[in-house]
């Protein structure tokens, strides 16, 4: 319908440029207090990225995020699939998940910090918690939707229950699981940033708030742009991976289940 001809991904690029242009115009034209023009914020970006200290900070953040994400997926996928295949397992976990769902995972930081200190362990644990929930949820939905007859055929061939879960349910539920992972990835980034905003000690969120405290407003906006682009890049990269893995399935229409 409204596809621009030729280059895929052109429309989002145009949208991105349009948003920056809108920001520039809003800042220069209307003159909102506390909003520097986009060009001034963008001018800060190379400086931040060239500074070894902030690079180490960003690297440390990404490392925690990757670790929390990997752990979250490793635990959440089996749990979700088992919930999808057994009503009892689902009944066991559902209320617990409902209780945890509305609690902001990053808000657990102060308590977890009491136990595990302010280091990597606390932040990784919080990211792990943030990632787990959507991945469990989507694995559960994916596991539940697996065609019963497919499992009957496998059982008739003599496949045992664990083998069925690994060789039938997992691949069949993979498209839905990957939707969960994609949401989980965005959530990992969000949890990472918020946990660092709350426990200001290192990382991307820390740079953001330190510059806010020191009234370096251009840096604040530059960091927001960096985090935003990071989110976009991770999402785009994951979407490519997803398409390569489950190109046979329908394109992802699922909702992005927000934040933590």
């Amino acid at each position: 319908m409204t596809r621009l001809p030729g280059i895929p991904g052109l429309a989002p690029l145009v949208a991105f440029a349009g948003l920056l242009a809108g920001w520039e115009v809003a800042a220069r034209g209307i003159g909102i207090d506390g909003l520097p023009p986009a060009s001034r914020a963008l001018a800060e970006v190379p400086g931040i990225l060239a500074d070894p200290e902030s690079l180490i900070n960003i690297g440390a953040s990404l490392y925690r995020m990757a670790l929390g994400f990997a752990l979250g997926v490793a635990v959440a996928v089996p749990v979700g699939l088992m919930m999808g295949r057994s009503r009892h397992v689902a009944a066991f976990f559902n209320p617990l998940l409902m209780v945890i769902y509305p609690v902001p995972k990053a808000a657990l930081m102060p308590i977890i910090m009491l136990w595990l200190g302010v280091g990597d362990a606390s932040k990784t644990l919080v990211i792990f918690l943030g990632v787990s929930l959507p991945v469990v949820y989507h694995s559960y939905q994916g596991g539940r939707a697996v065609e019963e007859k497919m499992l009957w055929s496998a059982a008739a061939m003599g496949m045992g229950a664990p083998a069925r879960l690994l060789r039938i349910v997992l691949p069949a539920a993979l498209p839905e699981i990957l939707v969960g992972c994609r949401t989980g990835l965005v959530l990992a980034l969000i949890t990472m940033v918020t946990s660092e905003m709350i426990a200001r000690q290192s990382g991307v969120g820390n740079i953001l708030f330190n510059s806010l405290d020191m009234a370096q407003y251009d840096t604040v906006y530059a960091m927001i742009v960096i985090i935003g682009v990071l989110g976009l890049a991770l999402d785009a990269a994951f979407e490519r991976l997803r398409a390569a893995l489950v190109g046979w399935a329908e394109p992802s229409q699922a909702l992005m289940v927000g934040t933590t």
């Binding site: 949208a15 604040v220 927001i224």
Partner: peptide, 27 residues
């Protein structure tokens, strides 16, 4: 409206929006 909002939503949806909070504090 669809042609304008579609790509903008695709760009903004995966952005961790809590990072915008400092900008809201400033403005």
């Amino acid at each position: 409206v669809g042609a304008v909002t579609g790509p903008i939503v695709r760009v903004l949806a995966p952005v961790p929006k809590i990072a915008l909070y400092p900008a809201f504090i400033l403005t």
